[in-house]
């Protein structure tokens, strides 16, 4: 079975995460679960990839982290949540445009 090459998709991990955060703030495992289900289980993001994306984007100011209690039934344990910033939304738009262009260019060289 063909698997997604991590080299190719690396540039778009941030885009996927931002897309999920556009809807609502979320936390690590929830985001990885959504990526898996939206991609029909075709792409499973590694924990280390996800965490480094968080730190990278936080440094660039695309997302912000905050701590909140775990789910309503939570036992008082805190969890780190992430939310998208305005700069992040802007970055997301530009990445979407970039992808359209990339796709258009690469597509012309693909024969089935």
């Amino acid at each position: 079975m063909i698997e997604i090459s991590s080299d190719v998709i690396r540039g778009y991990n941030d885009t996927m995460i931002l897309n999920i955060l556009m809807k609502e703030p979320s936390y690590g495992y929830e985001i990885s679960k959504q990526i898996r289900s939206i991609s029909d289980e075709k792409y499973i993001i590694k924990e280390t990839t996800l965490y480094s994306a968080f730190t990278r984007m936080e440094k660039k100011g695309h997302i912000e982290s905050f701590t909140a209690d775990q789910d309503p039934d939570g036992n008082g344990k805190k969890r780190t949540y992430y939310r998208i910033t305005d700069a992040g939304k802007e970055y997301y738009r530009s990445k979407c445009e970039e992808w359209d262009l990339t796709k258009e260019v690469v597509e012309r060289f693909i024969e089935h």
Binding site: G28, Y29, S32, E47, L50, Y51, T55
Partner: peptide, 15 residues
């Protein structure tokens, strides 16, 4: 990093 990663792994494991 260690505690965040552990949290994610724990979530996944529990589920």
């Amino acid at each position: 990093a260690k505690s965040e990663l552990l949290q994610m792994m724990e979530d996944k494991y529990n589920e």
